[in-house]
Design a protein around this nucleic acid. Structure first.
Lengths: 221, 221
DNA sequence: CGACGTGTTGAAGTCCTTCAAGTGAGGTGG
DNA sequence: CCACCTCACTTGAAGGACTTCAACACGTCG
């Protein structure tokens, strides 16, 4: 499973949720099974979540079912914080996932007691915005191969360049993240495999090793 | 020219910049000619801007020149505020544009004096994030006709549903905002014109009237 | 074991892009 | 004042990248 070690992409709000919010904050644990909805688009934003283990996808749907995944969240990541009262997208556990939960009011109530509270919050939202801006460039202007290369580099980076990556998401998840179909993602991965840029590890197609990061970077525009 | 009247999309930081930041803040005016760069990606974020009149595009470029426009900014809009020290994209005046400028440090220094300062800032960033999230769905999962319909609805809404819209941006700008080519945008607009959804006003193709907002909404997924 | 979920690969199709030509408005200079 | 240039836009035709449809392989799990 994925283990979060990297510091480059670390959230400003890091470490244990309760530690950030202060002692008064109440923080409890929860477990979601694979495929379970954590919260839905439009629901009241009662809680803020931090992943202990597992992985989460957040996405929006069009009326006819077309899906756009905004982001994948890995251990250590915080998600579900909304400035307004309701969630702007749906969150689902990709695999069995352990999270820490704190009520929004507890977090907000505890924050101002610490001088760095509001800065942390702005930093968190800003980081999400930055990711979204980069992703708009990817979605609007990159080719399928560039998209898949960028995805692999992002995962590789967030997993601190492990020798083998064990991706929690399906090809369809990747496709809905990159604005492609699952077949196109599969084809792109096959091309990269044939070009010796990556290697599938074992029988499962989710475990792979990046063999040539330089070439991958060049492929990503 | 565009006149900002609408309240629905109004920024939390509204009204005159200096009024928001407090009396101590120093705020000056500046004018940019059509096509001029206001700031570049990677530059130090010294100033925060608010548009008095005109229009601004913010965008990112790929090494080979492919461009993705994140957002169009109209009178009343604030832009250029970065939580980190450098600008994450380039800003250019689309037409002759008057802005109010305040140094980042002045704004940040004056903000905490007002109880609502940090909330305003978070709200501003959150609003940008919300727009980016919706735009990712558009870029990744909508068809060309849906994209153009969504663009028209967005402009119509931000201009408070005027009888005639006078768009400041070119077809290429619209295309780079929607992840399309200018020809595809032009074709989509022609289809909408032929279908009596909109009408071009006069000889210039930038001035147009939305004839059927309901049909436009249905076309936008 | 057989059913299902996931992934790969091929072939056909389609939407958008690319290439190309033509129109019209606006600006410049002789 | 108008020829001339340029820029923005439209429209057609051809091409291509990605999607859609389809078949098959492999692991997992009831």
């Amino acid at each position: 499973m994925l283990v979060r070690v990297n510091t480059a992409h670390r959230h400003p709000i890091d470490g244990h949720l309760a530690a950030v919010a202060g002692d008064r904050a109440f923080c409890s644990a929860f477990r979601y099974r694979r495929g379970t909805e954590i919260f839905g688009e439009g629901e009241d934003a009662e809680y803020v979540y931090q992943i202990n283990s597992g992985a989460v996808r957040t996405y929006k749907l069009l009326p006819d079912g077309r899906r756009q995944i905004n982001a994948f969240h890995l251990p250590g990541d915080m998600f579900g914080f909304e400035n307004n009262e309701t969630h702007r997208f749906t969150a689902e556990a990709i695999v069995e996932t352990d999270v820490r939960i704190m009520t929004r009011s507890n977090l907000l109530g505890a924050m101002p007691n610490q001088a760095t509270g509001p800065q942390h919050l702005i930093g968190f939202v800003t980081q999400n915005l930055q990711h979204a801006e980069n992703h708009m460039l990817l979605l609007g202007r990159k080719t399928s191969l560039e998209k898949v290369a960028a995805f692999l580099l992002e995962m590789d980076d967030r997993l601190a360049h492990p020798t083998v990556m064990d991706l929690p998401m399906t090809r369809r998840d990747i496709a809905d993240y990159l604005g492609l179909t699952l077949e196109t993602v599969s084809r792109a991965l096959s091309i990269l495999r044939d070009d010796q840029v990556l290697r599938f590890d074992g029988t499962t197609q989710r475990r792979l090793e990046v063999l040539d990061r330089d070439r991958l970077s060049k492929l990503d525009a």
